[in-house]
Write a protein that binds this DNA or RNA. Structure first.
Length: 571
RNA sequence: CGGGACGUAGCGUAGCUUGGUAGCGCGCUUGCUUGGGGUGCAAGAGGUCGUGAGUUCAAAUCUCACCGUCCCGACCA
């Protein structure tokens, strides 16, 4: 490709709409342009990179034995009703109507479609296992699209679905995908980590997310350097340790006045001086239209994902102050569970056996001290409900946990039989009995992965593409473009030789000043630049410059070999 | 959905408080210049100031509504 024939609209300044670095670079390097919020146009250079990411994904899925298919983006609502997800997934649907006013759904995901296919096509254990995948556009009515391609209304996803006859088989299918994902992100030049994840609305048994550490990520990962423990914040746990100086268990409850002190923090200060970990935080929620109390240690935070698990429903919300006053006869800030009857109490595991605790008295301006769990409060349910904090002890090895923000680029789920049962994906086993297939599903955000690469691979001058996904591997930069000049003739020679070897080469044949060409090639981030100018040519050299390395003066006749060597070293 | 900020040429922005000729930089066009790190000079083109209504002799500027963009939040009493 010649630069003068391409469309590479680089920008000196970032558009104001871009907040995070990778988004700015996407725009500045001329890879994408925004059509409107959450919708992006891939320009030629951006599309080349996207195709390379897709190709890596495709090769690794094929290697893992998955079969590529292509399903329609438009889906009938009936199959969603059949799977039971029509209501719960409602919020993310984009819906369209045909001329007969019938409703259709622009697919946010494809479990229903693939399971319908399998229900019709597979009937014997002899045909299993099977794993189908596609690389296709998904539509989700996101609450808040943001950060360019990171969270968009329309995005490209690789989704795969495995069907197995046995638990062991399903486990093996899961493992294959896990390994394939590890290879995929590695090949894209990403440092990704697999973490235990919450299964959320997908249902299913367990799952791992593939996370790319980045401060701009929307997720938080809890991990341990001591062992291999790593989990999404939504799921992460820590050792259930009560604070050591929990106090005398025998002291009787004592009510004391705390005028104006309505926060945990206020009670830690004089004249009260109650450390936050000696306090019980009492939250009032409404779950399935019924009130519940949630107890946490004062210095802990509720984790709603865990609450979803403990309650078995995601239908809950914090109570309003009015509801709380009606229920407990006190305002938030003086709430407690002592003496409360008829309201289910959910307590965090950390509070088990705690004594000498301080909590609200359910009377404005008063608290209780010397409260003991098990004596004064009898929770109906114990569960891990708190948000893990940095420095807490790893549940596995006891070392202090660390927290890192990250971008979720992939997710593997072990689904079980939820969809195969609902949509009749049954098969006959060896003994002639019909069983639902055991499923797994596996997603990679392809467009998000692309942006994650930029987020991770850049420097002050622009993108630093890994060879594997760079839009062009080599940028030839002649510093003067006179057709009959020695510089351009050598540039043309190298261009045709490298192109003939199957290398993606772009030649910056613009009649621009050297500084501008250098800046542009660095902004776009081509892995290798070959600079050819009269000065270097006079010394019998061309200048090979790896994007991330030092300049290598090279004899023109050795240039092709040197480039091949560099590509090999970086692949 | 709630809160906040913003909307002026392709991009970045000034002007708005205190109403009165729409300005600058980048980019673009032309000419000269320069030619190894976003050259310099000169001349140009490019604007329904997001949309609509209102106030006013007069609105980019004040008021209201709508649309759009971006950020934060949608829990921690």
């Amino acid at each position: 490709m010649r630069w003068t024939q391409a469309l590479i609209p680089t920008l000196k300044e970032s558009p104001a709409e871009a907040e995070i670095l990778s988004h700015k670079l996407l725009l500045r390097a001329g890879l994408v342009r925004k059509l409107t919020g959450g919708l992006y146009i891939f320009l030629p250079l951006g599309l080349r990179t996207l195709r390379k990411v897709e190709q890596i994904v495709r090769e690794e899925m094929d290697r893992a034995g998955a079969l590529e298919v292509l399903m329609p983006a438009l889906q009938p609502p009936e199959i969603w009703e059949q799977s039971g997800r029509y209501e719960t997934a409602q919020a993310v649907f984009f819906k369209v109507r045909d001329r007969a006013k019938k409703e259709w759904i622009l697919g946010p995901t494809h479990e229903e479609v693939i399971t319908t296919l399998v229900a019709g096509e597979l009937s014997s254990y002899r045909q299993l296992p099977k794993n189908f995948y596609q690389i296709q556009t998904k539509f989700r009515d996101e609450i808040r699209p943001r950060f360019g391609l990171m969270r968009a209304k329309e995005f490209i996803m690789k989704d795969a679905y495995s069907f197995d006859a046995t638990e062991d088989g399903a486990q093996a299918s899961y493992k294959k995908m896990y390994d394939a994902y590890t290879r995929i992100f590695q090949r894209c030049g990403l440092k990704a980590m697999a973490v235990e994840a919450d299964t959320g609305v997908m249902g299913g048994k367990f799952s791992h997310e593939f996370m790319v550490p980045a401060e701009t990520g929307e997720n938080e990962v809890v991990y341990c350097d001591g062992c291999n423990y790593a989990a999404n914040m939504e799921k992460a746990t820590s050792r259930h340790m009560m604070h050591a100086d929990t106090g005398d268990k025998e002291l009787p409850i004592e009510k004391f006045a705390t005028p104006g002190a309505t926060t945990i923090n206020a009670l830690t200060k004089p004249p009260y001086g109650v450390p936050a970990h000696q306090q019980i935080k009492t939250l009032v929620y409404v779950a399935n239209d019924k009130p519940i109390l949630i107890l946490l240690r004062g210095d802990h935070q509720l984790n709603e994902s865990k609450l979803t698990g403990a309650l078995g429903t995601a239908t809950f919300r914090p109570s309003t102050p009015d509801e709380i006053v009606d229920l407990l006869k006190a305002k938030p800030g003086s709430l407690g569970a002592v003496g409360v009857k008829d309201i289910p109490v959910y307590a965090d595991e950390v509070l088990r056996g705690a004594s000498a605790m301080t909590t609200g008295a359910n009377e404005d301006g008063f608290h209780l001290r010397n409260v003991a769990l098990g004596r004064d409060i009898h929770p109906a349910h114990w569960a891990d409900l708190r948000t893990t904090q940095v420095g807490e002890a790893c549940a596995t090895c006891g070392k202090p946990l660390k927290i890192q923000r990250a971008i979720e680029v992939g997710h593997v789920f072990k689904l079980g039989t939820k969809y195969s049962k609902a949509l009749n994906a049954l098969f006959v086993d060896e003994s002639g009995v019909q069983n639902p297939a055991i499923m797994g599903c596996y997603g990679i955000g392809v467009t998000r992965t692309l942006q994650a690469v930029i987020e991770q691979c850049n420097d002050k001058d622009g993108i630093v593409w890994p060879v594997s996904v760079a839009p062009y591997t080599v940028c030839i930069t002649p510093l003067s473009v006179a057709k009959d000049g020695a510089v351009m003739q050598l540039a043309e020679k190298l261009y045709s030789e490298l192109t003939a070897l199957g290398i993606d080469v772009i030649m910056d044949d613009r009649d621009e000043r050297p500084g501008m060409k250098f800046k542009d090639s660095e902004l776009v981030g081509f892995p290798i630049r070959i600079g050819i100018g009269e000065k270097s040519l006079a010394k019998g050299e061309v200048e090979i410059k790896p994007r991330a390395g030092a300049l290598i003066p090279t004899k023109p006749e050795d240039a092709v070999a040197k480039v091949l060597e560099l590509i090999k070293a970086h692949s």
